[in-house]
Design a protein around this nucleic acid. Structure first.
Lengths: 130, 130
DNA sequence: CTTTACGTTGACGTTAACGTCAAGCAGTGA
DNA sequence: TCACTGCTTGACGTTAACGTCAACGTAAAG
């Protein structure tokens, strides 16, 4: 069986193409500390961990979060949680994040409902025109 | 009964305070054509229509849309829809917008689920620590 | 009648998130 | 060996979304 095909380390070009971003974008995220690829000599090598992070970054961007905030979020997932104080801090952060996301969800629901009723009005007008 | 209290025209300071933005921000939105307040002499007067638009703008911002895109959306709501061709254009735009919003909603659902399972893990760890 | 509070128009500054060269190194197939 | 392809590091440019003066008009209040 072929195992080396889907999980080896990836080059910056492969990563960029797969996530449909430019190489400059990937580098920018690294400059901000959002991803930290391995270095073989001077060349960057991306592992599964980096891909996971990139995935989270791009979703955060689609949701309109600034990169700095995205960094604190994905760092939270990777943060050490050995002591009770650290775990409690995590739980508090989680609550904050959830509140934010739920607000956005409400906004989206509202927008979708308005869109629905607007569509209904348009269809009525269109029917009446025939 | 008092009717004049809640629906007169408003000044820029009142509008800005009520929506918790700066006067500069309101002016910026006007520069981009997102709102077009009345002018009494040189002074701006904001009506219910402007408030509705501002409300849509700020929700769009919370959802991470760029102002230019927000403009096309709220213009859509106010656009003339007399002819069938115009109505059909509106309906097409509505579908586009809905697809976009639904994508965002999926992203949010995913993020919330990850947050849930992350919280569960944290709580387990915390329980085990006691 | 002058201060004080708001309002207005520039116009330049700032931050975020990259885009866009330029110039150089490194492996590799002909 | 040489040309080519891909990767790397600067470093400056750009766009969006305002922030931040400065300088001025005006209307009510003392």
């Amino acid at each position: 069986m072929n195992v080396g095909h889907t999980d080896g380390p990836w080059t910056i070009a492969q990563i960029a193409a797969e996530f449909d971003v430019t190489h400059r974008t990937v580098r920018h995220y690294e400059e901000l500390g959002l991803i930290t690829p391995e270095r073989r000599g001077t060349t960057r090598l991306y592992h599964r961990r980096d891909r996971t992070r990139l995935h989270l970054i791009l979703r955060g961007k689609r949701l309109g979060f600034p990169l700095e905030q995205i960094r604190t979020i994905i760092d939270l997932y990777d943060a050490p949680r050995g002591k009770a104080s650290q775990l409690e801090y995590c739980l508090a952060q989680i609550d904050d994040r959830r509140a934010d996301l739920e607000q956005r969800r409400r906004d989206i629901e509202d927008a979708l409902h308005e869109l629905d009723s607007f569509e209904a009005r348009c269809r009525e007008d269109l029917d009446r025109l025939r």
